[in-house]
Amino acid sequence: DLRKKIVDLHKSGSSLGAISKRLKVPRSSVQTIVRKYK
């Protein structure tokens, strides 16, 4: 699940930009998912 991957990467200390590059999703999507998770 993409959300879980993003949250896991964020927990392990990756920046939003790094996560978005790695998973090839827009940075804004990463930000939204991380914000919802918090």
Rank of each mutant, 00 (worst) to 15 (best):
residue 20 S to A: 14
residue 14 S to K: 13
residue 5 K to D: 05
residue 35 R to H: 11
residue 10 H to C: 12
residue 7 V to R: 06
residue 10 H to T: 04
residue 28 S to A: 10
residue 22 R to S: 12
residue 23 L to A: 02
residue 29 S to I: 15
residue 23 L to W: 00
residue 14 S to Q: 14
residue 3 R to A: 13
residue 1 D to E: 12
residue 38 K to G: 10
residue 3 R to K: 10
residue 26 P to A: 11
residue 22 R to V: 11
residue 20 S to T: 05
residue 10 H to V: 09
residue 4 K to M: 10
residue 18 A to C: 12
residue 7 V to F: 09
residue 29 S to W: 15
residue 2 L to T: 06
residue 2 L to P: 04
residue 30 V to T: 01
residue 27 R to D: 04
residue 26 P to M: 04
residue 38 K to T: 09
residue 29 S to H: 14
residue 22 R to P: 00
residue 27 R to L: 15
residue 8 D to G: 08
residue 28 S to K: 14
residue 14 S to V: 15
residue 12 S to W: 07
residue 20 S to Q: 02
residue 35 R to A: 11
residue 11 K to R: 13
residue 16 L to Q: 06
residue 1 D to S: 14
residue 28 S to G: 10
residue 3 R to Y: 14
residue 15 S to N: 05
residue 14 S to G: 06
residue 8 D to N: 10
residue 13 G to Y: 00
residue 12 S to H: 10
residue 36 K to F: 08
residue 22 R to G: 07
residue 16 L to R: 03
residue 28 S to Q: 12
residue 15 S to D: 03
residue 2 L to H: 05
residue 37 Y to M: 10
residue 17 G to P: 04
residue 30 V to M: 02
residue 18 A to L: 07
residue 1 D to Q: 11
residue 29 S to G: 07
residue 27 R to E: 06
residue 16 L to H: 06
residue 9 L to P: 00
residue 28 S to T: 10
residue 8 D to I: 12
residue 31 Q to W: 06
residue 15 S to P: 05
residue 12 S to Q: 13
residue 25 V to H: 03
residue 34 V to I: 14
residue 15 S to K: 04
residue 32 T to L: 14
residue 32 T to S: 13
residue 7 V to W: 12
residue 35 R to E: 14
residue 25 V to M: 08
residue 31 Q to H: 06
residue 2 L to S: 04
residue 12 S to N: 11
residue 16 L to C: 12
residue 27 R to H: 06
residue 34 V to K: 02
residue 29 S to V: 15
residue 11 K to N: 11
residue 16 L to S: 06
residue 29 S to T: 15
residue 13 G to D: 01
residue 2 L to I: 11
residue 34 V to T: 04
residue 9 L to Q: 04
residue 24 K to G: 15
residue 8 D to F: 13
residue 19 I to Y: 00
residue 3 R to L: 12
residue 20 S to L: 03
residue 10 H to E: 02
residue 9 L to E: 01
residue 35 R to Q: 11
residue 6 I to R: 01
residue 5 K to A: 12
residue 20 S to E: 03
residue 1 D to L: 12
residue 6 I to N: 00
residue 35 R to T: 08
residue 33 I to G: 04
residue 38 K to F: 10
residue 10 H to N: 02
residue 29 S to D: 10
residue 36 K to R: 13
residue 6 I to D: 01
residue 31 Q to Y: 06
residue 17 G to T: 15
residue 23 L to H: 01
residue 26 P to D: 07
residue 16 L to T: 09
residue 35 R to I: 07
residue 31 Q to A: 14
residue 33 I to P: 02
residue 31 Q to E: 13
residue 29 S to F: 15
residue 24 K to L: 09
residue 18 A to K: 07
residue 25 V to A: 03
residue 21 K to G: 05
residue 16 L to P: 08
residue 3 R to C: 14
residue 28 S to M: 06
residue 9 L to A: 05
residue 21 K to V: 07
residue 18 A to E: 14
residue 20 S to H: 04
residue 19 I to H: 01
residue 17 G to Y: 08
residue 26 P to Q: 07
residue 17 G to M: 10
residue 35 R to P: 05
residue 16 L to F: 09
residue 14 S to D: 07
residue 36 K to V: 06
residue 8 D to L: 13
residue 22 R to I: 15
residue 38 K to H: 15
residue 13 G to S: 02
residue 20 S to P: 00
residue 37 Y to T: 07
residue 37 Y to K: 05
residue 38 K to S: 10
residue 29 S to R: 14
residue 31 Q to S: 12
residue 28 S to V: 08
residue 15 S to L: 03
residue 2 L to F: 07
residue 3 R to H: 13
residue 19 I to K: 01
residue 14 S to A: 15
residue 11 K to E: 09
residue 13 G to M: 03
residue 11 K to Q: 09
residue 17 G to N: 15
residue 10 H to L: 13
residue 34 V to R: 00
residue 27 R to P: 05
residue 38 K to P: 06
residue 1 D to N: 12
residue 33 I to S: 04
residue 18 A to G: 06
residue 33 I to R: 04
residue 32 T to H: 13
residue 29 S to Q: 14
residue 13 G to F: 00
residue 27 R to Y: 14
residue 28 S to N: 10
residue 7 V to D: 02
residue 6 I to T: 02
residue 20 S to W: 00
residue 31 Q to G: 08
residue 21 K to Q: 07
residue 22 R to K: 13
residue 26 P to E: 05
residue 38 K to Q: 12
residue 5 K to R: 13
residue 24 K to I: 05
residue 24 K to N: 14
residue 9 L to D: 02
residue 12 S to V: 06
residue 27 R to K: 13
residue 18 A to I: 07
residue 16 L to K: 04
residue 1 D to M: 12
residue 34 V to S: 01
residue 36 K to Y: 12
residue 20 S to I: 05
residue 7 V to L: 15
residue 32 T to M: 12
residue 34 V to G: 02
residue 11 K to M: 13
residue 30 V to F: 00
residue 23 L to G: 03
residue 14 S to R: 10
residue 26 P to F: 01
residue 30 V to K: 03
residue 11 K to I: 13
residue 22 R to N: 11
residue 36 K to T: 07
residue 38 K to Y: 13
residue 28 S to P: 06
residue 5 K to V: 12
residue 15 S to Y: 00
residue 2 L to Y: 06
residue 21 K to D: 07
residue 36 K to H: 10
residue 24 K to Q: 12
residue 32 T to I: 14
residue 19 I to Q: 00
residue 4 K to A: 10
residue 26 P to Y: 04
residue 38 K to M: 13
residue 38 K to R: 11
residue 26 P to S: 13
residue 1 D to V: 11
residue 20 S to V: 08
residue 32 T to P: 05
residue 17 G to A: 13
residue 33 I to C: 05
residue 21 K to N: 08
residue 26 P to R: 09
residue 4 K to R: 12
residue 9 L to G: 02
residue 1 D to K: 10
